[in-house]
Design a protein around this nucleic acid. Structure first.
Length: 636
RNA sequence: GCCCUUAUAGCUCAGUGGUAGAGCGCAUCCUUGGUAAGGAUGAGGUCGCCGGUUCAAGCCCGGCUAAGGGCUCCA
């Protein structure tokens, strides 16, 4: 007999040479059925692994991140086995687990969605065959090459690894693999191929393109169904679909990646910017507007011409070359140089909501999330070295006000000096520590990405998490040591001598277009009142109530509310439905009763009914809800 | 940019080589209706664009344009 220790510190007695699976069985039958792999003395191993006396053992299931990775990686092998059966010429390359599921990349394979059914049928056969993956180990590179040498991708991997080579076999299928793997294939009850795409070998466009198949699997068919359901739900929030349904924006083939914002979208846009401007006024920002197009000489000075030219739209007129701005900063530099500043004038906070154009690769475009024409809520802060910490703190506070307005949780990341960078060591030290000190003083947690800063300075990024759990990099604070130098910015210091200011770029929404798209999905089109394109719709019951409704509509508009009166020749039921489908916040049906009683029944788009509300009370309540930018209805 | 997929009425989508369809929306009329779809009639399409195959192309082939998924996760 021998003893092993479990994660919780308890000790188990087992026969000599017992495997991890036998341990799991001793603990409980259900654990043994769910066990994906074991962590033995800190290393991930197969359940078949023989335990040694005194070993520390943890049994991992699908509920553990690492267990899940093993589950999905084994699923990838099953997928590859099925692909080999259906397409014998396909050459498997790699097949790792990812955040949601896994993929496998193949060379010499073309699949379409019509093949999915065939592949899934084959996968079911493999699952039902209940293969027990067996680990094979190779002593030498040559041994491994004898098995996999005809696959150039596996060959590359083998030659790179040289030792510790292993493979797993299930039935006729052998795949080079580090492991570990599931004890059997029958555990994979729910399996679904999701999509296929091209992917470059090792992620590099210079390498051959492979065919990638994405899939997901679960130990339980119910979990698969729930996951697929969740995907469907997320699809319903898709800002591209809601944007069309709610008539917020559109794209035209004449302007790929260049959104048209419709009147209802502009209501949201303007509400966002009103909010943004009010906060910036409080924080003593001034706002400017610089030209969309400027001479290429400017872009040569800023460095964009050398580094960014292929992404810039250019135009030649009267033999002079101009470029549409991909960033606002160079224009902001010219503005700074308009005046001579004293140290007393700093920090100077200059904001600009600038429309920038960047020629993104055609395949990268995606709704409002990745566009070629967008607006940055930019600001450039010019300051003395001593101002850094306070200015960063100010921006952190401002960002917090903005994100918390939308109930968007976020986290911060600090990126430090990359290998390729400009500027003196002491400048990097000064600026990076300024950022760090401000982050620490703000009391917020942050992650550090060493070497991930821009070549011209360190930065802080804001990553927000939306209602479906996805994270987005929105805000950014970037210290820039390059532009003040290139543009020879100065201020006059206390000693009367010119000094170079420190400059930072910052954006909080990031791209307004993208933030807009995120909000559409975050709220699933159900905007809070202050953002909502149509806040209230009045539905007269019959024609004799039209004048009454129009009159009330006028009162609401005069109170600053966005009201519509539905005079269409439709039934009341239909009008209510239309208003709810249009995500109108409040719906009022107006008939004889309302004309007589001056008391109203207010219905929301979610079918909440608030009875017996007086007109003045209603107007007061809605104006308060809207102007205070409340997240939830104030009606009781 | 590259790989795969898609493009038919304003929108969502059927239509596998023989003169173009549905639902919603829109228009007109009937209905004047009380809280999620009242009824009838009608208009609306060079089937994304260019070329090819064919007696005949929305459908097959090629090119272009646009859209969607992906190209970060290293056996």
């Amino acid at each position: 007999m021998m003893q092993v220790q479990l994660k919780d510190g308890s000790v188990r007695e087992l026969p000599e040479n017992a495997s991890a699976m036998e341990l799991a069985k001793q603990i409980s039958g259900s654990l043994a059925r769910q066990a994906c792999a074991a962590r033995i003395n800190g290393e991930l191993k197969d359940m078949t692994t023989t335990l040694t006396p005194g070993a520390q053992v943890e049994i991992l299931t699908f509920n553990d991140e690492e267990g899940r990775d093993v589950f999905w990686h084994s699923s990838a092998h099953i997928l590859a086995q099925a692909v080999k059966r259906v397409f014998p010429d396909a050459k498997p390359t790699i097949g790792p687990p990812i955040e949601n599921g896994f993929f496998y990349d193949f060379a010499d394979l073309t699949v379409t969605e019509e093949d999915f059914e065939k592949l899934e049928a084959e996968i079911q056969k493999i699952v039902q065959a209940d293969f027990k993956p067996v680990r094979l180990e190779y002593e030498t590179t040559d041994q491994a090459l004898a098995v996999f040498g005809d696959n150039p991708f596996k060959k590359e991997i083998i030659e790179k690894l040289e030792e510790g080579l292993s493979a797993y076999q299930q039935g006729e299928f052998v795949d080079l693999c580090r492991g570990p793997h599931l004890p059997n294939t029958k555990m994979v009850e729910g399996f679904k191929i999701l999509k296929t795409s091209g992917a470059y070998w090792r992620g590099d466009a210079k390498n051959p393109q492979l065919t990638r198949i994405y899939a997901i699997s679960f130990p339980d068919r119910k979990q698969l169904r729930a996951y697929l359901h969740q995907l469907e739900e997320a699809k319903k929030r898709d800002h591209r679909i809601l944007g069309r349904k709610l008539d917020l924006f559109s794209f035209q083939k004449e302007g790929p990646g260049m959104p048209f914002i419709h009147p209802k979208g502009m209501v949201i846009w303007n509400a966002l910017l009103d909010f943004w401007r009010s906060l910036h006024r409080e924080d003593d920002y001034v706002e400017i507007k610089t030209p969309a197009m400027l001479s290429c000489e400017l872009w040569k000075t800023s460095g964009h011409w050398d580094n960014y030219r292929e992404n810039m739209y250019t135009s030649e007129i009267e033999e002079k070359v101009f470029a549409i701005k991909p960033m606002n900063c160079p224009g902001g530099m010219l503005f700074y140089k308009e005046n001579q500043f004293s140290y007393r004038d700093l920090p100077r906070r200059v904001a600009e909501v600038g429309n920038v154009h960047r020629h993104e690769m055609s395949g990268a475009l995606s709704g409002m999330f990745r566009v070629r024409s967008f607006h940055q809520d930019d600001a450039h802060i010019f300051m003395k070295p001593a101002d850094i910490k306070n200015e960063i703190l100010g921006v952190l506070r401002l960002a917090d006000k903005i994100y918390s307005q939308f109930d968007l949780p976020y986290h911060l990341e600090l990126s430090t000096r990359p290998e390729k960078s400009i500027g003196a060591d002491e400048d990097w030290e000064l600026t990076t520590e300024g950022l760090r000190a401000a982050l620490i003083e703000s009391g917020r947690e942050f992650k550090v990405n060493e070497g991930d800063g821009a070549f011209y300075g360190p930065k802080i990024d804001f990553h927000i998490r939306d209602a479906i759990g996805r994270t987005w990099q929105c805000g950014t604070i970037q210290l820039d040591m390059s532009l003040p130098m290139r543009f020879e910015l100065e201020y006059i210091a206390e000693d009367g001598k010119p000094k170079r200011p420190i400059m930072l770029h910052r954006a909080l929404f990031g791209s307004i277009e993208r933030f807009f798209g995120i909000l559409v999905e975050h709220y699933a089109g159900k905007f809070p009142l202050w953002l909502s394109p149509v806040q209230i719709r009045l539905l007269p019951v019959a024609e004799r109530h039209h004048d009454f409704a129009a009159q009330l509509g006028k009162t609401l508009k005069a109170a600053g509310l966005r009201a519509e009166v539905d005079l269409s020749n439709e039934s009341v039921n239909k009008k209510v439905r239309n208003a709810q489908v249009d995500q109108v916040n409040y719906i009022l049906v107006l008939g004889d009763k309302e004309m007589e009683e001056n008391s109203y029944m207010v219905r929301t788009r979610d079918n909440q009914v608030h009875p017996n509300i007086g007109w003045d009370q209603l107007v007061l309540c809605l104006t308060e809800e809207s102007s205070s930018r409340a997240s939830n209805s104030l009606l009781k």
